[in-house]
Design a protein around this nucleic acid. Structure first.
Length: 430
RNA sequence: GGGGAGAUACCGAAGCGGUCAAACGGGGCAGACUGUAAAUCUGUUGGCUACGCCUUCGUAGGUUCGAAUCCUGCUCUCCCCA
């Protein structure tokens, strides 16, 4: 199966410019995708694009990852994003480094193969380009009428938009178009890929290449990743899901994928894993026969967590999940060694209390609602206990006057409080 | 500028002198069920030194034994007319 067919089967093809497939069959082709350097880590929202580059490289082509140092300063008017703050160069550099490190996990930058990946930053070629030169050499080739016809621009000019659009944002597509032109001229990049919201910007680039260099360039976009329930993909209650383990722990990351709905998982496994078609179809088939086993989600979470983090971290996440959600018992909990214990509860809100507080025995209400912020108020805690919703170290608590003493400490220094089934809080005694 | 309606807890919305920490719905939280899901059902949803006390019904005063409820000033919102 070739690259384009594979994308099609995976539901990753939104739009493709005529001739693209032929070009890819003809020769090794370089393609680029732009990433916003607004943070030093990418999140799962960009993950589909990363996988796109990955597949591209696996198909024998040359992927270019462009970090939008220049474009990131401007802000794409697509979507409802407001004007963006300018990022300073130092931060940009730091973010670029972080992003490159992440991409290196997926793409081969180092091998020296002809199709080794390359990282570029449009700031490098934009920073010396003066405004006058730009409007004369580039602006000349694209009419305002053309630019105004883009959806991203039209939306912002329409009556419903209260925000208006600055000239800076308006020029965005031109700057991005110039990126493509530059890459075409300098690195023989003939294809730009991206999310479906980028189609208009990409086409401005191919148009610019045609008019200025008389060359032919191509475009592929992938659909926006959606969730069946209509909420935004890549977010949890606690915020964005990042690829960096310092921002989103491997455990949380694993959980994110494990919790996808049946319908979503079926689409995601095609987009976010490298598993071949027959294996995916097999898993989907098995899942349909026994949906409650959630084989599909498990497979998806395994593949993605292993790829983004590591096999070890994946196994740790599974172990943590079993303790937290399986029939984890107090004995099991106490049997963990300290390191495992801490990694299981990594990312769980933590509180610290002084050792003397516990030694004399402390009332549970005082401990959870005063010494720590596990509960907002004592009333809330009493209610939770009355509703059978509180556990300490995996044991249900039904007595609001319970005294917590040293013998409750796990490993001599930890107490695990649990509000309901899913909310854990770690109290460290030292 | 003239006239009218209104401001109640996270949101919507009842209440119009005591029995109001305030009906009901939504949302939130928890429990049961379950697939760590959805749907459903149940409980709970101001604070506390807790059969009692304290602070809350736009804001500041007043009437009253007693006010979210009545009166006055102020602020804001909505509607109609100019």
């Amino acid at each position: 199966m070739n690259f384009v067919e594979d994308l099609k089967w995976r539901g990753m093809l939104h739009d493709i410019m005529p001739g693209t497939d032929e070009q890819l069959k003809k020769e090794m082709t370089a393609a680029y995708i732009g990433f916003d350097p607004t943070a030093d880590s990418l999140h799962v929202g960009s993950f589909a694009q990363i996988m796109l580059l990955k597949r591209f490289q696996l198909a024998g082509h040359k992927p270019l990852a462009l970090v939008g140092g220049a474009t990131g300063m401007i802000g794409d008017p697509s979507g409802k994003s407001q004007e963006r703050n300018l990022l300073d160069e130092e931060l940009l550099n730091k973010n670029q480094e972080g992003i490159k490190k992440q991409l290196a996990k997926f793409l081969d930058f180092e091998s020296g193969a002809p199709n080794a990946a390359l990282m570029v930053n449009n700031y490098d070629w934009m920073k010396e380009f003066t405004f006058l030169d730009f409007i004369r050499d580039i602006g000349k080739h694209i009419t305002v009428n053309y630019m105004m016809a883009k959806d991203s621009v039209k939306k912002r000019l329409s009556a419903e938009s209260k925000l208006g659009m600055s000239f800076t944002e308006f020029t965005y597509q031109l700057v991005q178009g110039y990126d493509f032109l530059w890459l075409y001229d300098n690195l023989k990049c003939k294809l730009q890929m991206g999310g479906s919201d980028q189609w208009g910007n990409i086409i401005t680039g191919t148009e610019l290449i045609r008019r200025k260099s008389g060359g032919e360039a191509f475009a592929i976009t992938i659909p926006l990743i959606t969730k069946a329930d209509g909420s935004k993909f890549g977010k949890t209650e606690t915020g964005n899901v990042w690829l960096d383990s310092a921002r989103t722990s491997p455990y949380k990351f694993y959980q994110f994928w494990l919790n996808t709905s049946d319908e979503d998982a079926e689409r995601y496994i095609k987009v976010f894993t490298l598993l071949p078609k027959d294996e995916i179809e097999n898993v989907i088939g098995q899942h349909k026969e026994a949906p409650h086993v959630r084989l599909l989600q498990k497979k998806l979470a395994e593949e993605v967590t292993t790829m983004v983090h590591s096999k070890d971290e994946f196994e740790m996440a599974v172990e943590a999940s079993q303790i937290l959600f399986g029939k984890g018992t107090a004995q099991q909990l106490r049997s963990l060694d300290e390191n495992t214990f801490l990694s299981v509860f990594e990312g769980v809100p933590q509180f610290t209390v002084a050792k003397p507080e516990i030694e004399t025995g402390i009332n549970i209400i005082s401990l959870l609602a005063e010494k720590t912020g596990v509960f907002q108020s004592k009333g809330e805690l009493r209610r939770t206990i009355a509703g059978n919703g509180l556990s300490i170290n995996k044991e249900k608590i039904s007595d609001a006057d319970l005294l917590i003493k040293n013998d409750r400490l796990i490993g001599g220094k930890y107490i695990l409080a649990q509000k309901g089934k899913k909310n854990y809080y770690l109290i460290i005694v030292e």
